[in-house]
Amino acid sequence: MWTLLFDIDGTLIRTRGVGMGAMGQAIVEHYGHTDIPDVRVHGCTDRGIISELFRQLEIDLDADHSGFLQTYCELLHGKLKVHGGDLLPGVVDLLEHLNAHPNVALGLLTGNAQRAAEIKLDHFGLREYFLFGGYGDDHSDRNDVAEEASNAAATFLGDRFDDAKVWVIGDTSNDIRCGRSIGAKVLAVETGGDCKDTLAAKEPDLQLSDLSNVSAWLKTLDS
């Protein structure tokens, strides 16, 4: 059985900056800071983003971190309702096809905290497709998220899990790097955080403009 581990932001959906908007507002409401620094978000985990924001703002990372995360998720839910976002090309058709495939199991490998991932997927009607995952609640390094996702797949699938038949699907060089860390093949899509040349330099197994032209890749999953 093939295990396919999908990133979310920039791979399946775009949220038009809603996530960072919600995180910035949560800092204002929870800690009173109004000057929110710019930090890298593409390919990063929520834990890593929060750690860097807190470092620059001199906030103790353990100062009611769980309460802050709850506030962030509540704001994220509300902002998505107002501002929406976009499903990326080919996503629904691909997930429908893969969901019906007898030799495929779908999971997540995302930098989002688990609750944030659920909120985003629920908003776009995608949550039902994914059976397990690795998340960014506790890990700043995406390689650790990849290990969590691989372990979750092995636990869920049992004897059907084959670590030689894993694909990671993502839009940044960090997705490629973390896929390699667990020995997975990597499909990179040019719909998110890193440009075509940056992705190509990391030598993914396959690189596509988006997920609407995947017929050749799908044939490899029949083996």
Rank of each mutant, 00 (worst) to 15 (best):
T220I: 07
R40S: 15
D210V: 06
L12E: 04
L131I: 08
N143F: 05
G85Q: 13
R127H: 13
N99Q: 14
R160Q: 14
K120L: 05
G24K: 01
S223G: 08
E29I: 02
T34I: 08
G85H: 11
A216R: 13
A117E: 09
L121I: 14
F161A: 12
T220V: 08
V92K: 01
S223W: 01
D7S: 11
D222A: 15
S51P: 04
V214K: 02
E190T: 13
E74Y: 11
P102K: 15
A113N: 02
L57S: 12
Y31R: 12
D60C: 03
Q25R: 14
D171S: 09
I36E: 07
K185C: 04
D60V: 08
H33W: 05
A164H: 15
S212V: 04
G125R: 14
G10Y: 00
G43S: 09
D62P: 01
C73W: 00
T198E: 00
V104C: 15
V186G: 01
R160P: 00
A154C: 11
A26K: 03
H42D: 15
L187R: 03
D163F: 07
I182H: 00
D93R: 12
L61G: 03
F124M: 07
F161N: 07
L4W: 08
L126G: 02
G111R: 05
G43A: 09
R115A: 15
